[in-house]
Design a protein around this nucleic acid. Sequence first.
DNA 1: GTGATACTTAGCCTCATGGATCACTATTCG
DNA 2: CGAATAGTGATCCATGAGGCTAAGTATCAC
Lengths: 114, 114
Amino acid sequence: MDHYSDRLDGIFLALADPTRRAVLSRLAGGPASVGDLAKPFTMALPSFLKHIRALEESGLIRTSKQGRVRTCAIAPESLAAVETWLAAQRAVWETRSDRLDRFVTRAQQKDDPT
Amino acid sequence: MDHYSDRLDGIFLALADPTRRAVLSRLAGGPASVGDLAKPFTMALPSFLKHIRALEESGLIRTSKQGRVRTCAIAPESLAAVETWLAAQRAVWETRSDRLDRFVTRAQQKDDPT
DNA sequence: GTGATACTTAGCCTCATGGATCACTATTCG
DNA sequence: CGAATAGTGATCCATGAGGCTAAGTATCAC
Protein backbone atom coordinates (compact mmCIF):
# COMPACT_ATOMS: atom_id res chain seq x y z
CA MET A 1 0.00 0.00 0.00
CA ASP A 2 2.47 2.59 -1.16
CA HIS A 3 0.62 5.09 -3.33
CA TYR A 4 -2.55 4.36 -1.44
CA SER A 5 -1.62 7.39 0.60
CA ASP A 6 -1.17 9.55 -2.49
CA ARG A 7 -4.63 8.56 -3.60
CA LEU A 8 -6.07 9.63 -0.26
CA ASP A 9 -4.22 12.95 -0.54
CA GLY A 10 -6.02 13.71 -3.76
CA ILE A 11 -9.40 12.53 -2.55
CA PHE A 12 -9.35 14.45 0.71
CA LEU A 13 -8.01 17.53 -1.01
CA ALA A 14 -10.82 17.33 -3.54
CA LEU A 15 -13.34 16.99 -0.73
CA ALA A 16 -11.91 20.01 1.09
CA ASP A 17 -13.84 22.45 -1.06
CA PRO A 18 -17.52 23.32 -0.72
CA THR A 19 -18.01 23.77 -4.46
CA ARG A 20 -16.69 20.30 -5.15
CA ARG A 21 -18.68 18.72 -2.35
CA ALA A 22 -21.79 20.40 -3.70
CA VAL A 23 -21.07 18.98 -7.14
CA LEU A 24 -20.72 15.53 -5.64
CA SER A 25 -24.01 15.86 -3.80
CA ARG A 26 -25.66 16.88 -7.01
CA LEU A 27 -24.12 14.00 -8.90
CA ALA A 28 -25.25 11.61 -6.21
CA GLY A 29 -28.72 12.20 -7.62
CA GLY A 30 -27.57 11.21 -11.07
CA PRO A 31 -25.21 12.20 -13.92
CA ALA A 32 -25.22 15.74 -15.31
CA SER A 33 -23.46 17.89 -17.87
CA VAL A 34 -20.76 20.40 -16.95
CA GLY A 35 -23.04 23.29 -17.87
CA ASP A 36 -25.88 22.00 -15.73
CA LEU A 37 -23.57 21.44 -12.81
CA ALA A 38 -22.13 24.94 -13.14
CA LYS A 39 -25.48 26.76 -13.14
CA PRO A 40 -25.91 27.10 -9.36
CA PHE A 41 -22.51 28.76 -9.00
CA THR A 42 -21.59 32.34 -9.69
CA MET A 43 -18.03 31.65 -10.78
CA ALA A 44 -16.85 31.68 -14.39
CA LEU A 45 -16.99 28.44 -16.34
CA PRO A 46 -13.22 27.94 -16.69
CA SER A 47 -12.88 28.30 -12.94
CA PHE A 48 -15.63 25.78 -12.46
CA LEU A 49 -14.03 23.39 -14.91
CA LYS A 50 -10.98 23.26 -12.69
CA HIS A 51 -13.12 21.82 -9.95
CA ILE A 52 -14.47 19.20 -12.30
CA ARG A 53 -10.92 18.29 -13.27
CA ALA A 54 -9.89 18.07 -9.63
CA LEU A 55 -12.76 15.71 -8.96
CA GLU A 56 -11.93 13.60 -11.96
CA GLU A 57 -8.20 13.40 -11.27
CA SER A 58 -8.85 12.35 -7.71
CA GLY A 59 -11.08 9.59 -9.04
CA LEU A 60 -14.21 10.86 -7.34
CA ILE A 61 -16.08 11.26 -10.61
CA ARG A 62 -15.87 9.92 -14.14
CA THR A 63 -16.62 12.04 -17.19
CA SER A 64 -17.09 11.43 -20.87
CA LYS A 65 -17.74 13.71 -23.79
CA GLN A 66 -20.33 13.09 -26.43
CA GLY A 67 -20.79 15.70 -29.08
CA ARG A 68 -20.07 19.02 -27.41
CA VAL A 69 -21.45 17.95 -24.05
CA ARG A 70 -19.36 16.46 -21.26
CA THR A 71 -21.31 14.34 -18.84
CA CYS A 72 -20.14 13.74 -15.29
CA ALA A 73 -21.03 10.85 -13.02
CA ILE A 74 -20.04 9.88 -9.52
CA ALA A 75 -17.51 7.08 -8.96
CA PRO A 76 -18.62 5.31 -5.80
CA GLU A 77 -15.47 3.19 -5.41
CA SER A 78 -13.43 6.24 -4.45
CA LEU A 79 -15.66 7.04 -1.53
CA ALA A 80 -15.13 3.47 -0.48
CA ALA A 81 -11.42 4.26 -0.14
CA VAL A 82 -12.28 6.99 2.33
CA GLU A 83 -14.55 4.68 4.24
CA THR A 84 -11.82 2.09 4.43
CA TRP A 85 -9.41 4.59 5.92
CA LEU A 86 -12.00 5.85 8.38
CA ALA A 87 -12.92 2.35 9.45
CA ALA A 88 -9.25 1.54 10.06
CA GLN A 89 -8.84 4.59 12.27
CA ARG A 90 -11.95 3.90 14.22
CA ALA A 91 -10.95 0.29 14.66
CA VAL A 92 -7.77 1.25 16.47
CA TRP A 93 -9.07 3.90 18.79
CA GLU A 94 -12.19 1.98 19.57
CA THR A 95 -10.22 -1.08 20.53
CA ARG A 96 -8.04 0.85 22.87
CA SER A 97 -10.74 3.04 24.35
CA ASP A 98 -12.41 -0.11 25.59
CA ARG A 99 -9.49 -0.84 27.84
CA LEU A 100 -8.20 1.28 30.67
CA ASP A 101 -8.63 4.66 29.07
CA ARG A 102 -11.90 5.84 30.34
CA PHE A 103 -10.13 6.57 33.56
CA VAL A 104 -7.09 8.28 32.00
CA THR A 105 -9.28 10.41 29.76
CA ARG A 106 -11.23 11.54 32.78
CA ALA A 107 -8.06 12.59 34.52
CA GLN A 108 -6.92 14.70 31.59
CA GLN A 109 -10.03 16.79 31.22
CA LYS A 110 -11.03 19.36 33.80
CA ASP A 111 -14.70 18.83 33.23
CA ASP A 112 -16.73 16.54 31.09
CA PRO A 113 -18.17 18.26 27.97
CA THR A 114 -20.68 15.48 27.50
CA MET B 1 -26.36 23.78 8.87
CA ASP B 2 -24.51 26.84 7.69
CA HIS B 3 -20.95 26.61 8.96
CA TYR B 4 -21.20 22.85 8.97
CA SER B 5 -19.62 23.11 5.55
CA ASP B 6 -16.77 25.28 6.83
CA ARG B 7 -16.06 22.68 9.45
CA LEU B 8 -15.85 19.98 6.78
CA ASP B 9 -13.51 22.19 4.76
CA GLY B 10 -11.06 22.25 7.62
CA ILE B 11 -11.38 18.59 8.44
CA PHE B 12 -10.90 17.36 4.88
CA LEU B 13 -8.05 19.77 4.32
CA ALA B 14 -6.37 18.51 7.46
CA LEU B 15 -6.81 14.93 6.28
CA ALA B 16 -5.35 15.74 2.87
CA ASP B 17 -1.79 15.47 4.13
CA PRO B 18 0.13 12.26 4.78
CA THR B 19 2.02 13.71 7.73
CA ARG B 20 -1.19 14.65 9.46
CA ARG B 21 -2.86 11.35 8.69
CA ALA B 22 0.18 9.58 10.09
CA VAL B 23 -0.08 11.63 13.26
CA LEU B 24 -3.72 10.69 13.58
CA SER B 25 -2.93 7.01 13.14
CA ARG B 26 -0.34 7.28 15.82
CA LEU B 27 -2.69 9.09 18.16
CA ALA B 28 -5.30 6.44 17.56
CA GLY B 29 -3.07 4.22 19.66
CA GLY B 30 -3.10 6.72 22.51
CA PRO B 31 -2.05 10.28 23.44
CA ALA B 32 1.51 11.49 22.84
CA SER B 33 3.68 14.56 23.23
CA VAL B 34 4.57 16.84 20.32
CA GLY B 35 8.19 15.76 20.52
CA ASP B 36 7.32 12.09 20.44
CA LEU B 37 4.99 12.58 17.54
CA ALA B 38 7.60 14.52 15.62
CA LYS B 39 10.37 11.92 15.95
CA PRO B 40 9.47 9.77 12.91
CA PHE B 41 9.56 12.79 10.62
CA THR B 42 12.57 14.48 9.12
CA MET B 43 11.11 17.97 9.04
CA ALA B 44 12.01 20.72 11.49
CA LEU B 45 9.94 21.06 14.63
CA PRO B 46 8.31 24.38 13.76
CA SER B 47 7.13 22.89 10.49
CA PHE B 48 5.76 19.92 12.33
CA LEU B 49 4.02 22.14 14.83
CA LYS B 50 2.04 23.69 12.01
CA HIS B 51 0.58 20.29 11.27
CA ILE B 52 -0.38 19.86 14.89
CA ARG B 53 -2.06 23.27 14.81
CA ALA B 54 -3.91 22.34 11.63
CA LEU B 55 -5.18 19.18 13.27
CA GLU B 56 -6.21 21.04 16.38
CA GLU B 57 -7.94 23.89 14.58
CA SER B 58 -9.91 21.46 12.46
CA GLY B 59 -11.02 19.76 15.65
CA LEU B 60 -9.44 16.43 14.83
CA ILE B 61 -7.27 16.45 17.92
CA ARG B 62 -7.23 18.13 21.30
CA THR B 63 -4.05 19.27 23.01
CA SER B 64 -3.10 20.54 26.42
CA LYS B 65 0.12 21.75 27.92
CA GLN B 66 1.44 20.67 31.25
CA GLY B 67 4.80 21.95 32.27
CA ARG B 68 6.84 22.27 29.10
CA VAL B 69 5.22 19.31 27.40
CA ARG B 70 2.19 19.53 25.14
CA THR B 71 0.18 16.36 24.93
CA CYS B 72 -2.03 15.56 21.94
CA ALA B 73 -5.01 13.27 21.84
CA ILE B 74 -7.46 12.29 19.15
CA ALA B 75 -10.96 13.80 19.14
CA PRO B 76 -13.24 11.07 17.86
CA GLU B 77 -16.32 13.27 17.41
CA SER B 78 -14.74 15.05 14.46
CA LEU B 79 -14.36 11.86 12.50
CA ALA B 80 -18.02 11.32 13.17
CA ALA B 81 -18.71 14.49 11.17
CA VAL B 82 -16.93 12.96 8.20
CA GLU B 83 -18.86 9.76 8.58
CA THR B 84 -22.10 11.67 8.68
CA TRP B 85 -21.29 13.40 5.42
CA LEU B 86 -20.20 10.16 3.80
CA ALA B 87 -23.30 8.36 4.93
CA ALA B 88 -25.48 11.12 3.51
CA GLN B 89 -23.78 10.85 0.14
CA ARG B 90 -24.02 7.11 0.04
CA ALA B 91 -27.65 7.24 1.06
CA VAL B 92 -28.54 9.26 -2.02
CA TRP B 93 -26.61 7.38 -4.63
CA GLU B 94 -27.49 4.03 -3.21
CA THR B 95 -31.16 4.84 -3.27
CA ARG B 96 -31.01 5.84 -6.87
CA SER B 97 -28.65 3.07 -7.99
CA ASP B 98 -31.25 0.60 -6.87
CA ARG B 99 -33.53 1.82 -9.59
CA LEU B 100 -32.75 1.67 -13.27
CA ASP B 101 -29.04 2.35 -13.14
CA ARG B 102 -27.45 -1.02 -13.04
CA PHE B 103 -28.11 -1.16 -16.75
CA VAL B 104 -26.75 2.33 -17.52
CA THR B 105 -23.64 1.76 -15.42
CA ARG B 106 -22.94 -1.44 -17.35
CA ALA B 107 -23.14 0.43 -20.61
CA GLN B 108 -20.61 3.04 -19.46
CA GLN B 109 -17.88 0.65 -18.35
CA LYS B 110 -15.94 -1.48 -20.80
CA ASP B 111 -15.35 -4.33 -18.38
CA ASP B 112 -16.28 -5.10 -14.84
CA PRO B 113 -13.34 -4.50 -12.38
CA THR B 114 -15.02 -6.67 -9.75
C1' DG C 1 21.58 30.09 38.72
C1' DT C 2 23.24 27.47 34.65
C1' DG C 3 22.30 24.48 31.22
C1' DA C 4 19.62 21.37 28.78
C1' DT C 5 14.89 20.39 27.12
C1' DA C 6 10.50 21.23 24.78
C1' DC C 7 8.13 23.92 22.56
C1' DT C 8 6.96 28.77 20.31
C1' DT C 9 7.23 32.95 17.58
C1' DA C 10 8.63 35.44 13.73
C1' DG C 11 10.07 35.89 9.27
C1' DC C 12 11.23 34.15 4.70
C1' DC C 13 10.76 31.37 0.47
C1' DT C 14 8.44 28.61 -3.04
C1' DC C 15 4.77 26.39 -5.09
C1' DA C 16 -0.16 25.15 -5.43
C1' DT C 17 -5.02 26.64 -5.34
C1' DG C 18 -9.02 29.10 -6.60
C1' DG C 19 -10.57 32.75 -8.84
C1' DA C 20 -10.87 35.90 -13.32
C1' DT C 21 -10.40 37.10 -18.37
C1' DC C 22 -9.83 36.51 -23.24
C1' DA C 23 -9.40 33.98 -27.19
C1' DC C 24 -10.37 29.50 -29.36
C1' DT C 25 -12.34 24.87 -30.99
C1' DA C 26 -15.93 21.93 -31.97
C1' DT C 27 -20.97 20.93 -32.38
C1' DT C 28 -25.45 21.72 -33.48
C1' DC C 29 -29.24 24.44 -35.43
C1' DG C 30 -31.56 27.09 -39.09
C1' DC D 1 -22.78 28.66 -44.74
C1' DG D 2 -23.40 31.39 -40.42
C1' DA D 3 -24.66 31.88 -35.70
C1' DA D 4 -25.37 30.17 -31.30
C1' DT D 5 -23.94 26.71 -27.80
C1' DA D 6 -20.74 23.94 -24.75
C1' DG D 7 -16.71 23.33 -23.32
C1' DT D 8 -11.18 24.39 -23.52
C1' DG D 9 -6.65 26.50 -23.34
C1' DA D 10 -3.68 29.95 -21.91
C1' DT D 11 -2.46 33.42 -18.86
C1' DC D 12 -2.61 36.14 -14.88
C1' DC D 13 -3.12 37.25 -10.04
C1' DA D 14 -3.75 37.02 -4.90
C1' DT D 15 -3.69 34.14 -1.21
C1' DG D 16 -2.43 30.37 1.58
C1' DA D 17 0.10 25.93 2.51
C1' DG D 18 4.19 23.71 3.79
C1' DG D 19 8.85 23.86 4.30
C1' DC D 20 13.11 26.34 6.36
C1' DT D 21 16.23 29.05 9.93
C1' DA D 22 17.07 31.84 13.82
C1' DA D 23 15.91 33.56 18.00
C1' DG D 24 12.92 33.42 22.24
C1' DT D 25 10.33 31.49 26.38
C1' DA D 26 9.36 28.45 29.90
C1' DT D 27 10.36 24.23 32.57
C1' DC D 28 13.10 20.87 34.68
C1' DA D 29 17.51 18.85 36.37
C1' DC D 30 21.58 19.73 38.78
